[in-house]
Amino acid sequence: MGPVSGTTHQIWIEAGGGHDVVRADAIVMLRLDEAGRLTAQLRDDAKVSVTLLEGSSGARPPEDFHRRLIQTVARLADSGGAQLVRPRHEGGVWSWTSEPV
């Protein structure tokens, strides 16, 4: 995911189970590994990576879950106000939800 211009500075993504948040426009790459762990590489000289979603063997997100995050951020870029995006796993279904900050 390359940096997205526009109002993405107002879109924040929950990281590390809710303990941290990352600005969407700071992300330059997303990686979803075999265990379902979703990491984001941040745009900086140190190539810092942040875990957005811990992997697990029992409730692995779908293969395109990182792409769904990109779609959610793109959709929210047109909305006004700051938004927080977080992963949800309910009833066996994974989704990205958003709410005003």
Results as ranks from 00 to 15, higher is better:
3 P>G: 01
3 P>F: 06
4 V>S: 06
5 S>T: 04
5 S>E: 06
7 T>K: 07
8 T>C: 02
9 H>F: 14
11 I>M: 09
12 W>H: 13
14 E>H: 09
14 E>S: 11
16 G>A: 07
17 G>W: 10
18 G>E: 07
18 G>W: 14
19 H>R: 04
21 V>L: 10
22 V>P: 14
22 V>G: 12
24 A>I: 05
24 A>D: 04
26 A>T: 06
27 I>E: 03
31 R>M: 06
33 D>M: 05
36 G>V: 02
36 G>P: 02
37 R>D: 02
38 L>V: 06
38 L>S: 02
40 A>R: 14
41 Q>E: 13
42 L>F: 04
43 R>T: 01
45 D>P: 08
45 D>I: 03
47 K>Q: 15
49 S>I: 04
50 V>A: 10
50 V>H: 15
51 T>R: 09
52 L>S: 05
52 L>E: 05
53 L>K: 00
55 G>A: 02
55 G>M: 01
56 S>F: 08
57 S>R: 01
57 S>D: 01
58 G>A: 06
60 R>F: 13
60 R>Y: 12
61 P>V: 00
63 E>I: 04
63 E>W: 12
65 F>Q: 01
67 R>V: 03
68 R>A: 10
71 Q>W: 15
71 Q>D: 14
73 V>I: 15
73 V>W: 15
76 L>A: 02
76 L>W: 12
78 D>H: 07
78 D>T: 03
78 D>E: 09
79 S>W: 13
85 V>N: 10
86 R>I: 10
87 P>W: 11
87 P>T: 01
87 P>A: 01
90 E>N: 04
90 E>Y: 11
91 G>E: 12
93 V>P: 12
93 V>Q: 12
94 W>D: 03
94 W>S: 00
94 W>A: 01
98 S>V: 08
98 S>D: 13
100 P>H: 09
101 V>E: 13
